[in-house]
Design a protein around this nucleic acid. Sequence first.
DNA 1: TCAGTGATTAGG
DNA 2: CTAATCACTGAG
Length: 172
Amino acid sequence: MKGRVDRNFFLADAVTVARQLPGMDLVINAGEKYGRFMITETEAYLGSSDRACHASRGRTSRTEPMYLDGGHLYIYFVYGMHWMLNIVTGAAEDPQAVLIRGVRQYTGPGRVTKGLGIDGTFNREDLASSGRIWVEKTGLRPDLTAGPRVGINYAGEPWISKPWRFIIRNET
DNA sequence: TCAGTGATTAGG
DNA sequence: CTAATCACTGAG
């Protein structure tokens, strides 16, 4: 039940992966930054039809990493100050990703990347083979709450209301 | 509640 | 080239 999560896990769809990541550990081994952080909150962005997903606006240079196969990272910079950490899911050419919104020590997607030292140099990194970032199973089966995603009102219905945000109960 | 901050994107 | 937008955060 332990060890690095393999590529196969990330080839499932984004909602399935987003539901299973909470309770697993995100491991960072990058120079001065080193640590193990339990994932507590995720959100799924499900491909070209999901109007909240960047890829629904078409294939651009920014969204290109989402077209890689599952297990790669999609990192982007937003609001002039925050890096967002996303794990690509599904097969190649099928753009989906899971946003890591929280780990046990850092709540909020911008604070996660700041706390873990994740920036644009991690874009396209492969969790299945990287020496500086990967995911490990813990055997935990946390109790989850599902709800609508944050900050995507521009997407309109039905996307605003999809319960694709997953949080471990009693963790914020 | 609201301003900061700059990459990204669509459009002329 | 310009201008709008933004998967956020921290201060008030």
